[in-house]
Design a protein around this nucleic acid. Structure first.
Lengths: 265, 265
DNA sequence: TCAATAGTGTCTGTAAGACAGTATTAG
DNA sequence: CTAATACTGTCTTACAGACACTATTGA
């Protein structure tokens, strides 16, 4: 059994492999889940601690701010063994010889959140020996996923699974904090030149909703006029013909996303 | 021992891990190595076969063509066991618990080519069960590397290690052909918005030389005037004050690369 | 002188950002 | 009417690509 070998014997052996997932979902601040409205909440002490640390979570650049604007949230699981027992960590599992790495990531995702991702992509493979920090040397193949805005009402939360805003993360096990930061920069870069945002809004959406997604991911605030033109110029959107009225102001046109090729990866 | 387990037993076990490297170097066509001039060549039959297939290897878009223009070459190793015995494959090795994945890639690179890369970056981790094709299920963590133009004269070649132009690759083992193609698209994309090209030209270089590197990697032909302006506008180049005379025409200014931050990864 | 490459000037089209102005709703 | 957001028009700047033009060398 590998576990019984001592350090010098293990040095030239292969490290263990794991698959982890950075799961990102849009949510509004002011509650303990990505989209708090109508959700049965069994608040545990540490959930309260988390939301206590969150004064007005997002709004990186001020403007309006009468309603909380959406931000990125991430589900973490609590470690139930050493090292880092009790710390929050990325959901993960182990690859199996008969399934693809992507499926391993997908199943790790679904078993912790009961959700199906709208987007899933390999992030990076981390394998530096120093990252194990008292654990066994480990290679982590990390994926990142986007959860659609409509699904986030049905997430599951418990004492060992909890959502956190990416702007206010607890101390994490291993190098998981750096992994999340890397995932966030990747997403922020990629949202600018791909159709990522259209994947996570609903089937029908207004320009403002789409823009809010971009703003939540990049943490910036975008000019509505220029954003609209840029999106329409991409040729990936078409009006559904329907409108949406939300407040005491002009109703907004609804659009749908029309897929072309997929210049992915 | 793992090797004695049957298929159904192996299914839920972790796959094996390997580290492979796609090594890219600049070379001119018309010989069997990246930079053929003055090299002791012990041509083997298959080396002759390879160069016989190569009429005028590169020049994707015609212009001038009085001298062969540089193109990307890649070293491959011949497999000495089943499956795919005798086929060409990417150099690789196995990760060890006490060294980083990058160091594992570096040592695989150095043991096959005796060269030190100017640039080394993780490409992707391939782990689909279908890719093993008769071998044991395998996760391959693939890196790609760039070899400097000046080093390519000292490469080592033998019956089991040989350089091929990327435009004319032999049949490869496993899914290594797709891996190389993926590496090439990554490099082509990245050369446009990073300082990759400056890494592989020498310390001093003319604008034409730098432009040739870009052209070789992207496979396009670039306007000298616009290319010059773009490079100078980047602020990463400074004239050394020296000139280089090559033919019966105006001598060219020499530049050097000045590093700023490293907005990498 | 000519051929060849080095290097400059300039025009055009595209796209992003700033920002003024018009449209339509609820109250 | 006002406040709020939806949407349109237009100006400026930056930059990439096309391409004409000048500069300097060897033969």
């Amino acid at each position: 059994m590998l576990g019984s070998a001592n350090v010098s014997e293990r040095a030239t052996e292969p490290p263990d492999i794991g698959v982890s997932v950075v799961i990102l979902a849009l949510g509004r601040s002011g509650a303990q889940g990505p989209d708090s409205t109508n959700m049965p909440s069994a608040q545990s002490p540490s959930a309260q601690a988390a939301s206590a640390q969150r004064p007005s979570a997002l709004s990186p650049s001020a403007q309006g701010d009468r309603y909380a604007r959406p931000a990125l949230w991430i589900p973490l699981v609590r470690r139930i063994r050493q090292p880092f027992l009790g710390r929050w960590a990325l959901p993960g599992g182990h690859p199996q010889a008969n399934i693809s790495l992507e499926d391993a990531a997908r199943s790790a995702l679904e078993s912790t959140t009961q959700l199906t991702p709208r987007y899933l992509e390999q992030l990076y493979t981390f394998g530096d020996p120093s990252r194990s920090q008292g654990g066994l040397p480990m290679v982590s193949i990390v994926y990142w996923a986007l959860i659609g805005a409509t699904e986030t009402t049905e997430f599951k939360e418990g004492d060992n699974v909890r959502w956190f805003p990416t702007t206010d993360l607890p101390p994490l096990a291993f190098d998981h904090r750096e992994i999340i930061d890397y995932a966030l920069t990747r997403v922020r870069n990629k949202v600018a030149y791909t159709d990522l945002a259209t994947r996570i809004v609903g089937d029908e959406f207004t320009m403002s909703q789409l823009r809010e997604v971009h703003e939540a991911i990049t943490g910036t605030s975008l000019d509505p006029a220029n954003f609209r033109r840029k999106m329409l110029a991409s040729g990936l959107l078409e009006p559904t013909g329907r409108m949406q009225t939300t407040g005491r102001h002009r109703p907004a046109r609804l659009y749908r996303y029309v897929a072309h090729e997929s210049p992915h990866r």
